[in-house]
Amino acid sequence: MVQLTTANRLASLRTAPGLRERLDLPRRVVFLAAVSMIGIVTLLLGFIAWQGIQLFVKDGVPVGQVFSATWQPDATSGPTNYGLLPFILGTIAVTALALLISTPLSVGLALFLSEVAPRWARAIVQPALEIFVGIPSVVWGWLGLTILVPFLHDTFRHDFVISLPVLGDVFRVPGFLTGFSWLAGALVLSIMILPTITSVSFDAFRAIPQELRTGSLALGTTRWQTIRHILIPAALPGVLTAIVLGMTRAAGEALAVQMVIGSQPVLPRAVTQPIETLTAAITLDMGNTVFGEPWQDALWTMSLVLLIISVASVVLVRLINKRRMAL
């Protein structure tokens, strides 16, 4: 009896699978989507890389020149020099200062929302943050231009000096000339990246199992000790991911920064002085160049540098997350 049933079942399995089963359309469709995505990204990366090296390949500019400090791309006004160092350092400087301002605020806000805030406060702040993200960058730039830049100029016009007897002036920051400056760019960026860092860090804190909180508190620790010794270490990979995401956004932002930074291709020396970033330079010079001329090729090289920065940060996020998985 048993044997008979088994035989029957085997027989039914041996019938040839139907067309639909063999075709497996859904699997093919999603596979196609995945392949085309990979294809598009590869083409994009390849194109930018190709354009980015034209400055060296076609125009014969030595690679070392890119790391010099002089930007003189206009062949009509003397010998050219395509030094990208002011832009590279400018991007790093503005991004770093923006992160320095934004990170403590954002992580603090995330901690407040996750660990301290009553439910009603969270219900107000969270949608507010989402609205923050949705505000177009040109609006932030414009706000910076009309409020922040004049404010900086009017308030901190004079040099800031620390003088000591005998030693004389030990520290000097020149006052704002116009208000367009490294600091203005960093402030605008720090507000723009605040919601990103806050919400990703908030998720990291929320993802910590409640048992760790109650476990720590039940041992007779204070809420602050629990935050300091359990929650922050546990959320650290997530918070680092949040900071890297904020960094990527800050380094890639063009418009808002370009509106307030003053656009001077000089090495960053004081936060009160105008500088220039890679993205701002590309937006500004794009219209002045002709396709195929060395000036535009130099802009493509800038794009390539930006691409390398963003790829590096994606790799960084991956590495951080891998460590989190391993834990």
Binding site: E211, L212, G215
Partner: peptide
């Protein structure tokens, strides 16, 4: 109070740190 009255939970909830640090935490 919570130091004098300790608690063990339904689901074991060790902290994500070494055995030594778990015990030394309190």
């Amino acid at each position: 109070l919570r130091r004098r009255v300790g608690m063990v939970f339904q689901r074991p909830n060790p902290f994500p740190m070494s055995i030594y640090e778990n015990v030394a935490y309190g």
